[in-house]
Amino acid sequence: MTPIHWRKAGPDDAAALAYLGAATFLSTFAFDHPGGPLIEHLDAEHSADYYAAKLARADVDIVLGETPLGAPVGYALLMSPEHPQFQQDGDWELKRFYLLGPWQGGGNGRDLMAQAIQVARDRGAQRLLLAVYESNTRAIAFYERAGFVHIGETVFMVGDVAFQDRVYAKNLVG
């Protein structure tokens, strides 16, 4: 497996993030998400415009992973929390955490998580939140091994279809 170079994403990375986001979301969730709403979600939430808007915000950080040839293979998007029912002062959210299948395993997820946690700590976060689809058992196991604790449930919309997500938190201080 080729090594991954991690760096902070910038405005010129919006198209790469859009392709990577759509590819990882589709390959992970096509097994039980209806096609029409899935494509609608990809158009809205994984477009170059979506990522350009995120990259322009002061409260968003994206860590991008690339092969030595510059091909995007993973990323973590961190931002101000979007789960007010679980939010506490000092929280930051790991909104997206994606690696293409061939780069999963071998410590790449662990490396990306370390990058994400450092970004949150650099922002002064005391706790990191994330939401994960309840049927994504592999991701749930990974987050629990990384020290995240289940704190609640929320709904994630894909088009007009509701999916149940589990909300997790990891204390970053103490």
Rank of each mutant, 00 (worst) to 15 (best):
W6R: 07
W6D: 04
W6L: 13
R7N: 07
K8G: 05
G10W: 03
G10L: 09
D12Q: 13
D12E: 13
D13L: 06
D13K: 03
A14V: 06
A15I: 11
A16R: 08
A16I: 05
A16W: 00
A16D: 11
L17N: 05
L17K: 05
L17M: 09
A18P: 06
Y19D: 10
L20Q: 02
G21W: 00
A23Q: 07
T24V: 15
F25H: 00
F25D: 00
S27N: 15
T28K: 03
T28P: 03
A30H: 13
D32I: 06
D32S: 12
D32H: 14
D32Q: 11
H33Q: 14
G36K: 13
E40W: 00
E40G: 07
D43C: 13
A44N: 09
A44C: 09
A44E: 14
S47T: 08
D49I: 12
Y50M: 11
Y51K: 05
A52N: 06
A52V: 05
K54T: 00
A56H: 02
R57Q: 15
A58T: 15
D61E: 12
I62D: 04
I62G: 03
L64Q: 02
G65D: 04
G65L: 09
G65C: 09
G65K: 04
T67E: 07
T67D: 06
P68N: 06
L69G: 14
V73I: 13
A76I: 06
L77I: 07
M79N: 08
S80Q: 12
P84G: 10
Q85Y: 01
F86M: 09
Q87T: 14
Q88R: 15
D89W: 03
G90N: 07
G90T: 06
W92L: 12
W92K: 11
E93I: 10
E93D: 07
R96M: 10
R96A: 13
F97P: 00
F97Y: 09
F97K: 00
F97R: 01
Y98P: 02
L100V: 14
G101S: 15
G101D: 14
P102V: 07
W103T: 04
W103C: 03
Q104I: 10
G105N: 08
G107R: 02
N108K: 11
G109L: 11
G109Y: 05
R110F: 03
R110C: 02
D111S: 15
L112Y: 00
M113I: 05
A114M: 11
A114G: 14
A116M: 09
I117G: 01
Q118L: 11
V119E: 04
A120E: 11
D122W: 02
D122H: 10
R123F: 05
R123N: 13
G124F: 10
A125C: 08
